[in-house]
Every structure is written in structure tokens, then in C-alpha cells.
């Protein structure tokens, strides 16, 4: 769940809205980091800030919990059990890798990273397992990279963020087990997903340098958590809008498509007429023109 608190109630403007800064705006390179600035302040100011931060956290937690209870329903999937040890380990990981941009209370840092309060373990799972986070820098788009953390570390981070704000959790179990048919999954995919990700999941550019990425590397869990949490510019599809059964049908369709063989020979990218046009000009006309040059030569 995203922020649902009143700005006036807090008394100050949170660093950044939960959805993140405008990606078109680049950060100023010469702006000093807040942590550096904090070290220069006197000790009493530091303690006051931390106390205020704690109050904010408490209010946010109550607000989150209430809003969550009001609006969200169960994801229907099994939630993983996490221990206090996981949360502590996650906190350590957070403090080394995430705190610079997301703040020491997950409240986010202006111009750098959004608040993680309420994003849930699912969002953490998606961003970290696809390697998008930790992000190397600001930009229009965070692209998939090799994941920096192991699966165990990712669960620990999930536990930590979940404990500090709640939110949707990563589902477990067979994420392709659905009561809907493959055809229905395909229909849902084409209605909700294909306009950005393409009919074969090849991805497409969005405006001004942003990207709807290809789905070819995505695992079942990553597909699920992406739909659930709406990373970056992807819309959020919560479990009332696309029920867990429907989400699993979509995942079943996408992954089946990826694994299936092309009946017509080489799929040449499965991106449609552009690659077909390239093939006809390069292989078709190219080969045939070479052949007619050979035919026309005397022997």
C-alpha cells in the first residue's frame, strides 16, 4: 500500500512521494548528501530528528495498518514466515546498501529514492531479485541487472521492509496453478499487459527514455510481484482488480509462451513485421541480387 497520510497532520512535507521523484529530473551532482550534513549538526539536533522520525514512523504505521485493513484483501497466497533474526539481518543489509537513497527510516530521500514505507516485501523482492536495486544512479529507467544479493539475503531484506511498514508480500507456491484456461490467461495478458510489453513479451520503449522491459528473463515470482506492486512506471494491479487466480493465469500464459516452440521455423525475434522486412531485404533481395549478378555474367 502506498502512503495514505495527510501532509498537514505530519507537520512537514515528506521527502518524496511514495511513487518516487519525476524521473526526468536529474539530481544535482553538487548537492551534499543529507547524511553528511547530519554529521555536521550538533548532537541534540540529531536526537530530536531521530525522535521526530520515530513519531512519523508510528503515525505512518498506524495509518498504513488502518488503510491496509480497510482496502486491501488477502493476496490469497501463502505468506512466508520471517523471524526477528531475518529482520535484523535485513536491517544490516539495508544499512549498507539502501540507506543512502531510501533514508534511515525508510522514509525516502528527496531527489534520490522514494519512501519504502508500505511498499511491502513483494516490491523488495521484485526490485532486488531483478538487480534493479541497488541502483547505480538516477536515470529515466532502472534496468534489470545481475542480482547483487543471494536469495537468503533478499528474504531478509523483504522481512525488514515488511516489518517496517507492511504491504503486499511475495507469494509462495506454484504460481502457474490456475483455474483459468491458457486462452483466458492470454486474453487477460493481451488486455492488460501487451500494450506495454508487446504481444510476445518483447518489451517496448515508453516516453522519453523509459522502458517497458522484456519479459524473457522474468521468473514466475518476479512476474507476480511486478503485477502486484507496479514497479516504476508500471501500473499497480492489486488483487481485487486482477485476482490471484487471474494473475497466475497470466503468468502461466507468459511462461508457456516463452517455453513454446515456433511452428513456422525461426521466430526471428517474435517482434513482427520489422524483422520480417529486414529479412526480406537482406536475405531475400540480397541473395537474389547476388544470384542475378552471377547469372548475368558470361562464362
Amino acid at each position: 500500500m502506498t502512503e495514505d497520510f495527510d501532509v498537514d497532520e505530519l507537520g512537514f512535507n515528506p521527502a518524496i512521494s511514495a511513487t518516487g521523484a519525476d524521473p526526468d529530473e536529474a539530481p544535482h551532482p553538487d548537492r551534499a548528501s543529507s547524511s553528511l550534513g547530519a554529521r555536521r549538526r550538533p548532537r541534540r539536533a540529531v536526537w530530536r530528528r531521530r525522535f521526530a522520525g520515530g513519531v512519523v514512523l508510528l503515525i505512518a504505521l498506524i495509518g498504513m495498518g488502518g488503510a491496509y485493513a480497510l482496502f486491501a484483501t488477502s493476496s490469497g497466497a501463502n505468506t512466508s514466515t520471517s523471524t526477528a533474526a531475518d529482520v535484523a539481518a535485513g536491517q544490516k543489509l539495508y544499512e549498507t546498501s539502501c540507506i543512502t537513497c531510501h533514508g534511515n527510516n525508510l522514509q525516502g530521500v528527496n531527489e534520490r529514492g522514494p519512501s519504502l514505507i508500505g511498499v511491502g516485501g513483494a516490491a523488495v523482492y521484485f526490485q532486488v531479485s531483478t538487480g534493479r536495486m541497488p541502483a547505480p544512479g538516477q536515470g529515466a529507467e532502472m534496468v534489470r541487472k545481475e542480482a547483487k544479493f543471494t536469495d537468503e539475503q533478499i528474504s531478509q531484506l523483504e522481512a525488514f521492509v515488511q516489518a517496517n511498514g507492511g504491504g503486499p508480500e511475495t507469494p509462495t507456491g506454484n504460481l502457474r496453478d490456475t483455474s483459468l484456461s491458457l486462452g483466458q490467461g492470454g486474453d487477460l495478458f493481451r488486455l492488460n499487459c501487451a500494450s506495454c510489453h508487446g504481444f510476445s513479451g518483447a518489451g517496448a520503449p515508453l516516453s522519453a527514455g523509459k522502458l517497458a522491459p522484456t519479459l524473457k528473463h522474468a521468473s514466475d515470482s518476479q512476474l507476480y510481484t511486478a503485477m502486484l506492486t507496479g514497479p516504476e512506471n508500471m501500473p499497480v494491479f492489486n488483487d481485487n482488480q486482477l485476482t490471484p487466480d487471474e494473475k497466475r493465469a497470466i503468468i502461466d500464459y507468459i511462461q508457456t509462451l516463452k517455453e513454446s516452440n515456433d511452428p513456422g521455423g525461426s521466430g526471428i525475434g517474435r517482434i513482427g513485421p520489422v524483422s520480417e522486412g529486414l529479412v526480406i531485404w537482406v536475405a531475400g533481395i540480397g541473395a537474389i541480387v547476388l544470384i542475378i549478378m552471377w547469372i548475368g555474367a558470361k562464362s
Binding site: G186, D187, R190, L191, A194, S195, C196, H197, G198, F199, S200, G203, A204, A212, L257, D262, P263, G264, G265, S266, G267, I268, R270, P273, E276, V279, A283
Partner: peptide, 19 residues
């Protein structure tokens, strides 16, 4: 070389489009 794989596009539906 596979060409015009209509089974991947799906049937026409005015509410749907692919990037």
C-alpha cells in the same frame, strides 16, 4: 523464417493493442 505469427498476436479486439 516464421512470418506473421497470428497466433501470437491474438484475435482482433478493439480494446487491445500491442506495443
Amino acid at each position: 523464417a516464421q512470418i506473421n505469427p497470428i497466433w501470437l498476436f491474438g484475435p482482433y479486439n478493439p480494446a487491445q493493442v500491442s506495443s
